[in-house]
Design a protein around this nucleic acid. Structure first.
Lengths: 117, 117
DNA sequence: TGGCAATATTCAGTTGATCTATATACCGAT
DNA sequence: ATCGGTATATAGATCAACTGAATATTGCCA
């Protein structure tokens, strides 16, 4: 029940605005993450199967483009809902961590200020 | 090399402000996550070993409290740095997903508006 | 002609989380 | 006095997801 992993999250994000095919997702994720995360093909295609089985994504259409098949996936309504929830949780987690890190700094500041009196 | 998982992130967050012992981390993580995530003991103690081995946390001290040992851990400087970086990435990911989800809504809005003309 | 980008598939290996069980000590309530 | 719950740590078996590498095909460009 606990949070999805980064690649999964990025795959859903890549599909959020419009349908894409596998390779398109790979390149989009690279962009999305500012080049930090690149999706290995093994990760992608097994994740696509899994997410489709869970109903978070659906096959949109299949095309033959210059002799190669392209299978487009789209985010389902359930997928969009899951992504929204997960996004909120990321935000909450980031906020919690920031607050704690800040109070850590405050701790330091206090002892410095204390020493200065 | 890719992002840490949620339990790991929450453990580091729990240690960010002040040292805590294992059980204290479990209860703090429950709070931190608004009760959504609860750390199983197996998850915690293996994560503590791993994080200590990676140098992200350190043993702070050991106490005997009413006959039971308590081992306190603290976040190392490296751990704080890792947590800051990871926090920034969570924020970035959340922002990217929000933007995509919004443009999805825009897409819908556009076609509705289009149909209305 | 040779190599690379685009594209999809599969599989073996690794990692980290989960669940379950075990153990001990104290405390409050029967 | 005893039973159950809370506090606390540890270990092992298992599972889910990610990783990396190998395989295959087509078209384009040097």
């Amino acid at each position: 029940m606990s949070g999805m992993r980064e690649p999964t999250f990025l795959i859903l994000t890549a599909l959020a605005a419009e349908p894409r095919h596998g390779y398109g997702i790979i390149t989009d994720v690279t962009d999305l993450s500012g080049g930090r995360t690149r999706l290995a093909p093994g990760t992608l295609y097994s994740a696509l199967d899994r997410l489709a089985a869970e109903g978070l994504i659906e096959v949109d259409r299949e095309e033959i483009f210059s002799g190669r098949m392209r299978r487009y996936y789209r985010l389902s309504e359930a997928g969009a809902a899951a992504l929204r929830i997960e996004t909120e949780q990321l935000r909450a987690r980031a906020a919690a961590a920031s607050a704690r890190l800040a109070s850590r700094r405050t701790g330091l500041t206090r002892s410095v200020l204390g020493a200065m009196q």
